[in-house]
Write a protein that binds this DNA or RNA. Sequence first.
RNA 1: GCCGGCGUGGCGCAGUCCGGUAGCGCAACCGACUUGUAAUCGGUAGGUCGUCGGUUCGAAUCCGACCGCCGGCUCCA
Length: 650
Amino acid sequence: MAAMPRLTLPDEKVIELPEGEPVGAAMPKGTIAARVDGELRDLSFVPSADAQVEPIAPDSDDGLHVLRHSTAHVMAQAVCDLFPGAKYAIGPAIEDGFYYDFELPEPLHAADLPKIDRRMRQIGKQNQPFVREKVSRDEARTRLAGQPFKVEIIDGLEEEAAGGEAGVGDTVSLYRNGEWADLCMGPHVPHTGKLGAFKLTSLAGAYWRGDDSRPMLTRIYGTAWASQEDLDAHLHRLEEAERRDHRRLGVELDLFSFPDEIGSGLAVFHPRGGLIRRLMEDYSRRRHEEAGYEFVNTPHITKSDLFKTSGHLEWFADGMFPPMELDGGTEYYLKPMNCPMHILIFRSRTRSYRELPLRLFEFGTVYRYEKSGVIHGLTRVRGLTMDDAHIFTTKGQMGEELKSLLVFVLDLLRDYGLDDFYLELSTKPEGKAVGTDEEWAEGIEVLREAAQSMDLELVMDEGGGAFYGPKISVQARDAIGRTWQMSTIQVDFQMPQRFDLHYAGADGERHRPIMIHRALFGSVERFFGVLTEHYAGAFPLWLAPEQLRFVPVADRHADRCHELAIAARAADLRAVVDDSKESVGKKIRAAQLMKVPYTLVVGDQELESGTYTVRDRAGVEVAGVAFERLVEALAEEARTRAPEQTSFGD
RNA sequence: GCCGGCGUGGCGCAGUCCGGUAGCGCAACCGACUUGUAAUCGGUAGGUCGUCGGUUCGAAUCCGACCGCCGGCUCCA
């Protein structure tokens, strides 16, 4: 019995394909490509006997990849049509869309995008088939003469082939549609009429091959989806992200600013932002105290020797502010990290094994010279405060310490309202690394065990650890599904060696401690920014700078409002009276724009009945609430750090 | 750092292409109204148009340098 290619349909029905025929003919409607023995292929692909064939729908991950890459081709084609002399480089599918890089005779402007978009849609209407051609490298070079980037890629492939690289043959594939052709592995949609819904989004510079010594190319970004609905949903998500942007909310809610006079990446916190920040820090301090941390304080500048010993000047100098030189020629640096200072505290006297694990904690402000182009709001700054701690343990204690540390980290992050995590574990890099194999193995094993006991997804980053020890990082997904790297826990076999740390063991001998670096927020600034976006500025009650606002209906109600506010403050609530001479409507609007959790309008009705209508910041009103009950409920909400507002309905 | 865009009262913007001496909304302040759950009405004040230099009789507008902000700079044809 002759073997035949088999096609697995989405309903898991398996049919046999006629041998020697392209897969396209037998495909279900709507299919744009196929996986043949696991490889993505065009519908024109002729499978070998015995091949396993699966259809690819446009809205699947594979389908979107094909769709986006095909859209990139059509965009490049449109650009070449409109700008003769354009050299095209690479144009892959990326998350949510695609890009293509060009070298153009004239600079491109955002105003040119609609023109390119129009041309792309014309090409779409022509239903130009995508045709795969297998040609020799020499022929490809001839066909793509005048395209230096493509020729460079072909040359590179030739070298790989000569080097015996697997999977590189003597031929390359070209994909042609209409007059335009590109060096490409494919696959593509059957023809240009099968593109989905797309939109060109932005223009940027990018180096050829990401190398800043190579030419700067013009990159055009676009987004592409299987349907108009999906595209609209994506654009809506972008708007939502923009609405939550902490830089914008920072201005609107009067939280912080970046005065030009101070300098790039250096934030000042205003009273409201300062209060939120203090609340965040206070809670963290309390929890650290309970968890057995000891609080230390260290200066912001230090003589250069300290960072020579630590090695920072050797491999981190680019990230440090330049030194200040004193009369005697002594150099001082702003500290980019707290670790060496904490180490000196450990080393200030002889340590006993009885003192370990020793946990030194500090909200330590450090300065890092981030390149001007990478500074971004509060999430990437030049002056930041780390919730930094260094734990000195014996080898034997390391396991338990790491385990309880991970529990502590996740527990604390949950209290701030983040609850969707995964963990990333970075293991020993190839080649040179400090520490013995046993130490690495134990560190990794404990971190892995701890991670698994947390019942969280664990992503391995094999060989991704720093040379001085394994690391686990906590990634958190926010309210709209974006992931942020939060906490890092880093085992360090190196610093204790560099600083020659030791402690007296039970055996009377000197032993080298192991050091664990950990920061839960990363930096207070960054954590502030992430929480602002996570909550879209509507901080939970315990973090809200103002919790309760009173709005008197007329001047004669103001006194009562002030009395109520005093009563609320006695219950530790942050209450404010808006006695400005504005209409009730305007004051309600102002309260809601500032995202004040609860607002109470106080007028004749309230004076008479003694009960109030509670309005939350979503605009939901509940009438007939007694003041005592309100205060009690809010105090409870704040005390429990509830992520949701109290509902006063019955 | 590099490429592109942008920089006009506290905030959001118009005016810039086609030089002729700065405008709107919100906020602020003053006054009237004493208000019932997202914007009451009227008035006042506030800007050497990012900075420095150049061209010009004249520059927010044209030219140059610098500063700052925004987006992008790993994702293999």
